[in-house]
Amino acid sequence: MTATDFPAETTMATASSRSRTDRRMALRGLAFVAPAALLLIAIYILPMIVLAAFSVTDYQLGALSIRFVGLQNFTAAMDDDVFMRAFANTVLYAVIVIPFGVFLALGVALLVYNRKRSRAFWEVAYFLPVTATLVAMATVWQFLLHPSIGPVNAAIKWFGFEPVAFLSNPVLLIPTMAMIGIWQVLGFNMVLFLAGLTAIPKDLYEAARLDGARNPIDRFFTVTWPILGPTTMFVVVTTSISAFKVFETVAVLTKGRFGSETLLFNLYLEGFEYSNTGYAAALTLIFLAIVLILSIWQTVHMDRKVHY
């Protein structure tokens, strides 16, 4: 073989092997994703189709007959006092948890961020509730808030006020659960804010000081708040999604008594306790629509995260 025909031969060889390599790679790729793809069909796609199908029937688990009812389940939901109450409760819960869970977390993050030696300690203290099993901690809260033997009411009495029936006064049930929700989500949001704060270049604060931002309020509004914008947006959305999924506290504290159902708890009762499968499927779709709107909003914002 001479030096001149050598390159020609190799290009021909690669051209014919290229398609073979491609085919082999495609087969390998398909083999690699096959388990995940099958599971995706079994766990996500088929159930979604079945769910949509259930939602237009009167199917009850174990029943022998099944009848197509159109959108009747959805209209029934609108007239269902329990569902509407659960919906209102969940919205109330979210409306309390979101502002407090987000802005308290921002405040704590700002304070923690500037501590040098004690920062790790505060991080642990505030993050501990995030890792704890909520079912167990809700039981502890039940005890803490007990009207006669709980320390919280003991403290209230010591200050000279009437004891508060946190877990038996129907008006206070949702706010009490929201308080526990804030307690649990605070550390999580704090860590997200801390990550956001770490990403702010120090130069900007220095430039702001030279530009005449004398007091911390000016520096906060010139630098911190606008640059944390995307982080705040993200924290608000994740907090709302988790607020709409509130379940454990209800299951432990009230089991839905005194009109304290939330969306998910109501869904659980209809679908799994009362076996109203068709109706529960319609409720599930409503629940899913709410979560999807929030998630899509979040995804859109994530894409624009680098909007500067």
């Binding site: 995706l40 088929l46 159930p47 979604m48 079945v50 259930f54 998910l264 499968t277 599930t284």
Partner: peptide, 25 residues
Amino acid sequence: LMTLVIAALCVPIQALALPLFVGLA
């Protein structure tokens, strides 16, 4: 597949619980 994965990210398990439960039952 990638699109499906990202779409599935938005779906919470609570939304799939009902059909999965029926299937297992």
